[in-house]
């Protein structure tokens, strides 16, 4: 079996490090927002409802990327992307902002992992509302990375199927 150069040889910590750098870069360029690691401090899940956006990708390897964030973070994100006040925006703008963010982070993550010479197909991002308890459950998964953006938690979870199509 020939090793496929597009499949990264990475440990979980390496993926987290790359994911953190990619998310920081995208948030800064996309929305002029700056993130910091949540570290060992428990992530503050205030509020009853959170938004979960997920995108799937397939190509030399496959997987999915999810984001979990509060509605207020999504409003802030939409406002910063569009240069408007949160009060001027609708719920649809805020929900689209999280979909766009997972889409853009996924695109950049795949370039960081596999380079520009290969083609990945990305699904349309799917958004759902989840409870604070479910958000907390995603945050503690081994594949999840918790960061803080403007005092709001953002959970980034990646699942890569690296053994896909290795011929």
């Amino acid at each position: 079996m020939t090793e496929n150069p597009a499949i990264p040889r990475l440990a979980g910590e390496d993926v987290h490090e790359i994911l953190y750098d990619v998310a920081a870069d995208v948030l800064e360029k996309f929305a002029f927002l700056f993130l910091s690691p949540a570290g060992s401090v428990p992530v503050p899940f205030r509020g009853r409802m959170f938004l979960h956006a997920e995108i799937e990708f397939s190509g030399p390897f496959s997987g999915r990327l999810s984001l979990v964030a509060s509605p207020s973070f999504c409003s802030l994100l939409a406002a910063n992307v569009l240069g408007m006040e949160p009060a001027e925006l609708t719920v649809e703008h805020a929900e689209d902002a999280l979909r766009e963010l997972v889409n853009v982070i996924c695109g950049e993550l795949l370039v960081a992992l596999a380079g520009k010479a290969v083609i990945f197909d990305l699904s349309a991002p799917v958004l759902k509302r989840i409870s604070a308890a479910d958000a907390q459950a995603v945050a503690v998964l081994p594949e999840s990375l918790a960061v803080i953006v403007d005092e709001e938690p953002l959970i980034i979870a990646s699942a890569l199927c690296l053994d896909h199509d290795t011929r």
Partner: peptide, 22 residues
Amino acid sequence: SVRSEARMRELEQLGIKGYVTK
């Protein structure tokens, strides 16, 4: 959001000359 040179070449074959990544 896909910054793939291979995808850009595919699109060029469809006559698409402009590609901007988010």
